[in-house]
Design a protein around this nucleic acid. Structure first.
Length: 578
RNA sequence: CGGUGAGUGGCGCAGCUUGGUAGCGCACUUGGUUUGGGUCCAAGGGGUCGUAGGUUCGAAUCCUAUCUCACCGACCA
């Protein structure tokens, strides 16, 4: 490609609303343009990258035994009614009507459609297992689109769905997909982690996310510093080795006045926040005979809402109690709540249970207890008189850096990650709801087990930039660079020698099948260097009068800055071997 | 959905307080100049000032409504 016949669309300045580096660089490098909130057009340079990512994904899917199909973006709302997700999915599901006022949705994902196809066209166990995929535009009406194509409303996703008679078979395909995903991210050259994840609203039990590690990530990933254990912090189990020490202090009630937060109480009593516990009141589930449940956490720890919701006593989704209701029931406001004589069921986080001689609210305005010890002092509705019993000690808190790793080896580190892939073992959630099954060997009807596997193609492009950039611009990994090499001639429009060598090299590289960009603009060298560094072409060949005298050309590597002089006739081989 | 802020040429902004018919930088066009790291000079083209209504002799500027966008939060995966 010659730059004079191409739409480079680079710019020096960047719209002020772009605040992550990948978004800024994608705009400056002329890769994308915003059309409206969360909607982006892909310009030639961006599309080239997108297509390369997509090609790698296609190849690895086919290699893993998945078969390509294509499903409509517009789907009948009926289907979503059947699976129960029309309500469940909420306003993120964009609903539209056709000219006959029939209801449709824009597909954010395709479980309903694929299940319909398979239930109609797969009737025998002999046709299983089956794994189908597509690469396609999805639409999710995000509350707040941000970070450019990282969280846009319209985006391209590879989604695959597998169908099985047994969980064992599903588990095998799940493993194959896990391997295929690793292959994809390895080939692209990303620094990523496969992490244990929550399956969220999509349903199912087993689930892994693939995260590209980057500061701008929206998820927190916890991983062991000495094994390959990694989990979304939403899921990471908080391990506490400590056990409560024997009491050394007497229980005392103290007036703490206006101090109502962990921070102010700790300061007033000159203690560390970890020597106190806090009490959160949440709505109870219908499983138990109570309106609320009290959750006890160590003062310096945070509640993990996902863990809390999974407890049978706690309503899901999690609802925090209103202060007025708590006052009526307990007799004091949020600031002085505590586990002792709490008139409702209590759940204690493992770390809080390991505290001794601690501080907590006294369930009385302005009053706290000090020197509290569980075995000696604790009592609450639903608990044994003898203090803490194991049924109410549970994992409720968010893990923090330095916690012991749940895998038993090392301690946890926490880093930010960008979710670029997610695989699920769905089980029969959709196949059951939509009656998708086959006849088995024994002639019996059986509902299928499903898996689903997604990769955010557009998001990978942004994630790759987050991980590979410097002050001059993007540094593409070779596998997804828009061009492999750029020819930068110095003063080609004045020098016949430079012109001749540049034109010939361009033709030779084309003939060798290399993805080459030829900057044939009548621009000053500085402009060309700056543009090519910005769009991140990994390899440059610079042609100038001064090196032609030695029959040589200069090679420059974008990422390493390495410069080498090459004999003219060795350039094509040098590049093709890169 | 709550909080905050912004809409003036393709991009970044000034002008608004104190109304008088729109300006700067980048980009673009032409000519010259320069040529191994975003040259310099000159001349040009391009804007119903988000939209609608109102006040006024006169509105980018004041008033009202409305739309859009962004940031923080909540939500989602």
């Amino acid at each position: 490609m010659r730059t004079t016949q191409y739409l480079l669309a680079t710019q020096k300045e960047v719209p002020s609303d772009a605040d992550v580096v990948s978004h800024q660089l994608m705009l400056r490098a002329g890769m994308v343009r915003k059309l409206a909130s969360g909607l982006y057009s892909w310009l030639p340079t961006g599309l080239r990258v997108l297509n390369k990512v997509s090609k790698i994904v296609h190849e690895e899917m086919v290699r893993a035994g998945s078969i390509e199909i294509n499903m409509p973006v517009v789907q009948p709302a009926d289907l979503w009614q059947q699976s129960g997700r029309l309500e469940e999915y909420g306003p993120e599901l964009l609903r539209i009507q056709d000219r006959h006022q029939r209801d449709f949705v824009l597909g954010p994902t395709h479980e309903e459609v694929i299940t319909t196809i398979v239930s109609n066209d797969v009737n025998s166990y002999k046709q299983l297992p089956l794994n189908l995929y597509q690469v396609q535009t999805k639409f999710r009406d995000e509350v707040r689109p941000r970070f450019g194509v990282m969280r846009s409303r319209e985006f391209i996703m590879k989604d695959a769905y597998s169908f099985h008679l047994s969980m064992e078979c599903l588990s095998n395909t799940y493993q194959d997909m896990h391997t295929a995903y690793c292959n994809v991210f390895d080939r692209i050259g990303l620094n990523y982690r496969s992490v244990i994840a929550d399956s969220g609203s999509i349903g199912g039990a087993v689930s892994h996310e693939f995260h590209v590690l980057a500061e701008s990530g929206e998820d927190d990933i916890a991983f062991s510093n000495s094994s390959d254990y990694a989990a979304n912090v939403e899921l990471a189990e908080a391990i506490t080795h400590a056990v409560a020490a024997s009491p050394t202090k007497a229980l005392e009630k103290v007036n703490t006045g206006d101090a109502k937060t962990i921070a102010t109480v700790s300061e007033l009593l000159s203690i560390n926040a970890s020597q106190s516990v806090k009490t959160l009141i949440v709505a109870a589930s219908s499983e138990i005979d109570a309106e609320f449940v009290a959750l006890i956490l160590r003062g310096d720890h945070q509640l993990n809402a996902i863990k809390a919701e999974k407890h049978p006593w706690i309503a899901s989704p999690l609802v925090m109690a209103q202060e007025e209701a708590v006052k009526t029931l307990v007799g004091c406001g949020f600031g002085t709540l505590g586990p002792i004589k709490m008139p409702m069921p209590v759940l204690v986080d493992r770390s809080a249970a390991a505290c001794s001689d601690f501080v907590c609210g006294a369930n009385e305005e302005n009053m706290h207890f000090t020197g509290v010890n569980w075995q000696r002092d604790f009592s609450a509705k639903g608990a044994d008189a003898s203090g803490l019993d194991s049924r109410i000690v549970v994992d409720l808190r968010q893990v923090v850096a330095g916690d012991p790793s749940p895998c038993g080896s090392g301690t946890l580190d926490i880093r930010k990650g960008i979710e670029v892939g997610h695989i699920f073992q769905l089980g029969d959630k959709y196949s059951k709801a939509m009656n998708c099954g086959v006849l088995t060997e024994t002639g019996k009807y059986q509902v299928l087990q499903m898996g689903c596997y997604g990769i955010g193609i557009t998001r990978i492009v942004a994630a790759a930039i987050e991980q590979n950039n410097d002050k001059y611009g993007i540094m593409w990994p070779d596998a997804i660079a828009p061009f492999k090499v750029v020819i930068i001639p110095m003063n080609m429009h004045k020098s016949h020698r430079v012109n001749e060598v540049a034109q010939k090299l361009y033709q030779d590289l084309l003939d060798a099948g290399v993805d080459v960009l030829f900057d044939d603009r009548k621009e000053r060298p500085g402009v060309m260097f700056a543009d090519m560094e910005l769009i991140g072409v990994p390899h440059s060949i610079i042609i100038g009068e001064r090196n032609l005298d030695e029959n040589a050309l200069e090679y420059k590597n974008r990422a390493t800055g390495e410069k080498i002089m090459l004999p003219i006739d060795k350039v094509v081989t040098f590049i093709t071997e890169k």
